[in-house]
Computed example of a mutant assay.
Amino acid sequence: MSDRESIISIEKSIRYISAHVKSHGREILKKYELSPLQFVALQWVDDKEGITIGELSNRLDLAHSTTTDIVDKLENGAFVKRQKYEKDKRIVLVLMQDKGHQIIKEVIAKRISYISEITSHLSADEKEMLPVILESILQESEKRSHE
């Protein structure tokens, strides 16, 4: 297999594995009546506590009004709350509620369980090498995304 063919195979594998892991984790969303897009928004709020609606709309690549609708639904479901920024009352922050943290934990646990299942056939050496290789690729990816 040529280098190009190998890279094409890696891209396809990463894309498919990512889709499968997301799909299994998102089974939890049915219980909470959340859409995948609402969950992605919730993840961004969890990653950056005190994110503004503007920042969130940029992260989601959606119009401000669409993002506001998503936050409304998340707030109505008690997953997040809005709070005025103390230093500038014109700015509204989106903060996680306990229910939001709980669903994130459940989805991550479901994803971890699935990854454990799909890697169970690997040898002990492969299981030890896989996170090291993936972490190295992730670090390089993050370096290049900030350039």
Rank of each mutant, 00 (worst) to 15 (best):
Trp44Ala: 10
Phe39Lys: 05
Ile28Arg: 02
Phe39Ala: 04
Ser35His: 08
Leu34Trp: 04
Arg15Gly: 00
Tyr16Asp: 15
Leu37Gln: 15
Glu27Cys: 03
Leu34Pro: 06
Ser9Gly: 12
Lys48His: 09
Tyr32Gln: 10
Lys22Thr: 06
Asp47Glu: 14
Lys12His: 07
Leu34Gln: 10
Lys31Asn: 13
Lys22Val: 03
Lys31Phe: 09
Gln43Ser: 06
Glu33Gln: 11
Ser23Lys: 11
Lys12Cys: 04
Lys31Pro: 11
Ile10Cys: 11
Leu29Pro: 12
Glu27Arg: 07
Ser18Asp: 12
Tyr32Phe: 11
Asp47Gly: 07
Gly50Phe: 03
Trp44Pro: 01
Ser6Ala: 12
Val40Pro: 05
His20Gln: 14
Ile10Met: 13
Ser18Val: 02
Lys22Met: 09
Arg15Tyr: 00
Leu37Asp: 15
Pro36Val: 02
Ile10Thr: 12
Ser6Thr: 11
Ile8Asn: 14
Lys30Pro: 01
Val40Asn: 14
Gly50Ser: 07
Leu29Lys: 07
Ile7Lys: 14
Leu29Asp: 09
Lys48Ala: 10
Pro36Thr: 08
Val40Gly: 04
Gln43Trp: 03
Tyr32Ala: 13
Ser6Gln: 11
Glu11Leu: 08
Trp44Tyr: 14
Tyr16Leu: 15
Ala41Val: 03
Leu29Gln: 07
Arg15Thr: 05
Gly25Ser: 06
Trp44Val: 02
Ile28Phe: 03
Pro36Arg: 06
Gln38Tyr: 13
Gln43Cys: 08
Ile14Gln: 12
Gly25Met: 00
His24Leu: 09
Asp46Trp: 02
Gly25Cys: 00
Asp46Arg: 09
His24Lys: 11
Lys30Thr: 04
Ala19Val: 01
Trp44Cys: 07
Leu42Val: 00
Val21Asn: 11
Gln38Val: 05
His20Pro: 08
Tyr32Cys: 09
Lys22Phe: 11
Leu29Ala: 04
Lys30Ile: 05
Ile14Leu: 15
Lys31Leu: 05
Ser6Tyr: 07
Lys30Ser: 06
Ile17Arg: 13
Leu42Tyr: 02
Glu11Tyr: 00
Val45Met: 04
Asp46Ala: 05
Arg15His: 01
Lys48Gly: 09
Glu27Leu: 00
Ser23Asn: 13
Tyr16Lys: 15
Asp46Leu: 02
Glu49Ser: 05
Pro36Ala: 02
Ile28Gly: 04
Ile28Ser: 08
Ala19Met: 10
Glu11Arg: 10
Glu27Thr: 04
Asp47Asn: 11
Leu42Ile: 01
Gln38Lys: 06
His20Ser: 14
Ile8Thr: 13
Ile17Pro: 08
Leu29Gly: 06
Asp47Met: 07
Ser35Phe: 07
Ser18Leu: 07
Ser6His: 06
Gly25Ile: 01
Leu34Ile: 07
Trp44Ile: 00
Arg15Met: 01
Ile17Phe: 10
His24Asn: 14
Lys12Val: 09
Glu33His: 09
Val40Glu: 15
Leu34Asn: 08
Glu33Lys: 11
Gly50Ile: 02
Glu11Phe: 00
Ile17Tyr: 13
